[in-house]
């Protein structure tokens, strides 16, 4: 659906070319919620803006549904942009227009719709995002979460197939973030909407994304299904995100374990295994003792997972680990 082909992008700053993106090459599938995560300066805002060409690549192609959009003329690009919605961290609503006028704005710009048609569409969109009673208010009278809902309604006005989210929840409090993410997930399902979201918060990706690309210094450090990338992070940047999200300091953790006897491993359960009494059963069979040093049970989108750091002592630890592996757990050695 969306394909980046050998994208390079650099900015000219004070006579020097500063690279922002360096050899981006991946695809985003139709109907997918695709997360792009990276620290500030990693190039994620530039990357998301390539999809509607708010930024042009210095080299490479962006292909959407088979069309190379970098080759479109001005009119073609405008038509393409009408098929892509976008929401922003700071909402970017027009303060001079009411909520209803903001939602009607893309339709009015497109100029293909009658007044009655626009009115009906705006009413339906506002009902969908739960803002019907706020139609005649101005953005300044709304809360952050309400403003983002207006942004979402506005982005969906022209019935786009793609929705781009530029740090859409970063200015919102946790509850509001949760509600907005839920709305996005629902819209993805109802409308078969492809959603591309960029964020620096792992939690956002973990809650709703199907796949994720970790961006580091203008390159894709890691890409894959969210559970795979976050449960088995390979790249240092991905590890840092995972640790940040769990507020764990890796160095501190290793120090803490210095006094713990036995062999320390990290066990990862996903899916049904998460809720089964595997650890106890296996420990009994192999005659080992274990103590849980750290752990969390959570969900990645709809998949439950558990990740435990466990110290095994006594008995046949190897046999225990083999049995656990045979039941589909993944095992990572922390200290032998």
């Amino acid at each position: 659906m969306i394909e980046f082909k050998q994208i390079h992008k650099s900015y000219r700053v004070a006579g020097h070319d500063v690279p922002a993106l360096n050899g981006i090459d991946f695809q985003i599938g139709a109907g997918e919620i695709f997360g792009i995560i990276g620290h500030s300066g990693a190039g994620k805002s530039t990357l998301v803006r390539l999809i509607n060409l708010l930024e042009r690549p210095s080299a490479g192609q962006v292909i959407i549904n088979g069309t190379d959009i970098t080759a479109l003329d001005a009119a073609g690009l405008r038509a393409q942009r009408q098929r892509i919605g976008m929401i922003f961290q700071h909402f970017n609503l027009l303060s001079s227009k009411t909520v209803a006028q903001n939602v009607a704005f893309p339709l009015a710009l497109a100029g293909e719709h009658g007044k009655a048609q626009i009115k009906a569409r705006v009413a339906a969109l506002l009902a969908r995002v739960g803002l019907t009673e706020h139609a005649d208010k101005y953005p300044a009278q709304l809360s952050g979460g309400q403003k983002q809902r207006v942004g979402i309604a506005r982005a969906l006005a022209t019935e786009p197939q793609i929705l781009l989210c530029d740090e859409a929840t970063s200015a919102l409090d946790p509850q509001t973030t949760q509600a907005v993410l839920q709305l996005l997930a629902d819209l993805n399902r109802e409308l078969k909407l492809t959603i591309v979201l960029i964020t620096h918060e792992m939690d956002v990706v973990r809650r709703i994304a199907d796949r994720v690309a970790v961006l580091d210094a203008g390159q894709v450090a890691e890409i894959g299904p969210v559970a795979e990338v976050f449960l088995h992070p390979q790249h240092p940047t991905t590890r840092r995100f995972v640790l940040e999200a769990e507020s764990v300091d890796e160095g501190e953790q290793v120090d803490d374990y210095a006094h713990v006897p036995g062999r320390i491993v990290r066990l990862t359960f996903t899916g049904d295994a998460t809720y089964q009494p595997l650890l106890g059963a296996v420990a009994r069979d192999a005659g080992v003792d274990f103590s849980i040093l750290a752990g969390r049970i959570d969900r990645i989108k709809d998949t439950p997972y558990g990740q435990l750091t466990v110290a095994f002592t006594g008995g046949d630890v190897n046999a225990a680990l083999q049995q656990l592996a045979a039941r589909g757990l993944s095992i990572e050695e922390v200290r032998a």
């Binding site: 509607n52 690009l77 393409q80 942009r81 009408q82 976008m86 970017n92 704005f105 893309p106 710009l109």
Partner: peptide, 13 residues
């Protein structure tokens, strides 16, 4: 706000 221009541009204006 520059974001307003960007948002309007993104709508295909």
């Amino acid at each position: 706000d520059r974001g307003i221009i960007e948002a309007t541009q993104a709508m295909g204006a």
